[in-house]
Write a protein that binds this DNA or RNA. Structure first.
Lengths: 69, 69
DNA sequence: AGGGGGTGACAAGCATGCTTTACATGTGAG
DNA sequence: CTCACATGTAAAGCATGCTTGTCACCCCCT
């Protein structure tokens, strides 16, 4: 799942750790999402969308590598 | 995670099984989402949004029962 | 030389999404 | 009554999200 989390985070001058605290997840989770080692859960995607004030579909897009599209 | 999947599905006259086929998941998965026994993954939420042509935030909303909001 | 912040990654372990299989209920048609 | 279909739920098992802990590399500062 491609995403713009790093872009949105660094535009706000935050570290991965700071974003993790703001979202209630670990630094490693933020890192893994940014490096696309895994796809966040729907609740975490909502938390990201709320935090950055963007729609989920603006932040994530399917990369043609998943059966769910 | 509250959702409008049942509403959107029945408005289109589809069974849970038919929706499952359209989404590439099992009938039980559709049922469990509609009865809110669990929250779908982000890829499945995307598939639902595409199928029903609604934004994810229009279809799901957090129910104050999750730390991720 | 040493310390600090930021990042990338891996491992073990627990929680949850999703599958198949299976059983129960209700409804409408023959 | 029997059949078909839609729905609700449960259990076992596999896949994945997320945690803590740890190691490594970079850059900057002292």
């Amino acid at each position: 799942m491609r995403n713009r989390v790093r872009e949105l985070r660094s535009a706000r001058g935050l570290s991965q750790g700071q974003l993790g605290v703001a979202l209630g997840v670990s630094r490693q989770t933020v890192n893994a999402i940014e490096t696309e080692r895994y796809t966040p859960s729907l609740p975490l995607a909502f938390a990201l969308g709320r935090f950055f004030e963007v729609r989920i579909e603006e932040m994530f897009h399917v990369d043609d590598d998943s059966r769910d599209g």
